[in-house]
């Protein structure tokens, strides 16, 4: 079942068998509100008869990828992406090729690859933004990210991108695919370094906007209370509806809710991505023009209240530009404001 936070409308997937007859309390990680959820009528009797320890589903990738050999290649250029995928295939690895940032993020969340080759300048969402989200996501902790600069220039960035965005390795575009070989060796991939073996690269299973199934559910280490695995912070950029970090059951009597980020068939994903981008730009403008006010609000821990009037103009722009079905899902502007404030150290 889907439980929505009544305050900020963040949505969580909760297994009804873990909800007792009097419901269970959930704390929303996004806004910290505590709310009660009740099992649907039909699930009530099932809950009563459930076994003491409900089995928790294992991660269920949609295709039979071998995670130990799986690499997601996110490259805006069809040809160079195929070259990289072909080389990985020659080395005995499996690869999924995607061409934009949103697709990359969804594929990474679904397939939990061991390594991601991420072009920095992907369309729809920059590679470095994808990298930041991946690196904040606890369930993707073991995924290594190779960030690819598009231009062969040592001074392309004045600050190394690996330092900025948390990537594990930084490689320049023209060094692909051969530059990957030492990285793969170092990461302990089982390489076949002769050119015969190897399955062909596989196309992504689904387009970015139509994700058919929930992402793999991370099995919790202990029974209860169980944290819902999700990105460590609310994702700042285009993404499917995600359960924010640390959402947890607060009643000890409630057993593990096998909850996971909600990724349903979603025709509004592109509009949501647009809404998140607009929110980032509006908030960035507000902070740029009122830095002292923002800093003071961070110190006081009340950015949402202190900058409420500044958000008014942003809200009216949102009304004009964003589809009401997405606009009313959650408070994009306040969430983005709080995200930035937390990045700057607000408690």
């Amino acid at each position: 079942m889907i439980a929505a936070c009544p305050k900020c409308n963040a949505r969580y997937r909760v297994n009804p068998i873990h909800i007792g007859s009097d419901g269970a309390r959930l704390r929303c990680a996004r806004c910290q509100a505590v709310f009660r959820v009740r099992a649907p009528e039909s699930a009530g009797s099932t809950a009563a008869a459930r076994p003491a320890a409900a089995p928790i589903p294992e991660p269920t990738p949609e295709h039979d990828f071998d995670r130990t050999r799986l690499v997601v290649v996110a490259d805006p250029e069809e040809d160079s992406g195929k070259r990289t995928a072909a080389a990985l295939s020659e080395w005995g690895l499996q690869s999924i090729l995607v061409h934009d940032g949103v697709e990359a993020l969804l594929t990474i969340q679904r397939q939990l690859p061991r390594l991601v080759v991420l072009d920095a300048a992907l369309p729809k969402m920059y590679g470095f933004q994808v990298c930041e989200i991946v690196k904040r996501n606890e369930s993707l902790r073991s995924t290594r990210v190779v960030l690819i600069g598009a231009i062969h220039q040592s001074d392309r960035y004045r600050r190394p991108p690996s330092e900025l965005y948390g990537a594990d390795v930084y490689l320049e575009g023209p060094d692909l695919p051969d530059g990957l070989l030492p990285i793969l060796r170092q990461a302990g991939f089982p390489l076949v370094e002769s050119a015969a073996a190897a399955p062909a690269p596989v196309a992504p299973p689904q387009p970015a906007v139509a994700v058919p199934a929930a992402p793999p559910i991370q099995a919790p280490a202990q029974a209860a209370p169980v944290a819902i695995q999700a990105p460590a912070q609310a994702a700042p950029v285009a993404a499917p509806i995600e359960a924010p970090a640390q959402a947890e059951l607060v009643t000890p009597e409630a057993a593990a809710p096998a909850a996971a980020p909600v990724v349903a068939d979603d025709p509004l994903a592109a509009e949501r991505s647009k809404a998140e981008r607009l929110a980032r730009i509006i908030v960035s403008d507000i902070i740029l023009y009122s830095p002292e006010k923002f800093d003071a609000a961070i110190a006081a821990g009340n950015v949402a209240e202190a900058l409420d009037s500044d958000l008014d103009e942003g809200r009216s722009l949102f009304q004009q530009r964003i589809d009401p079905r997405v606009r009313d899902e959650r408070n994009f502007l306040v969430e983005e404001l709080i995200r930035v404030a937390r990045e700057k150290g607000m408690q």
Partner: peptide
């Protein structure tokens, strides 16, 4: 002149 400036090639490309 800023330290966090993107490269000229990147700016041009985008």
């Amino acid at each position: 002149d800023l330290p966090n400036a993107a490269s000229l090639d990147e700016m041009r490309r985008v």
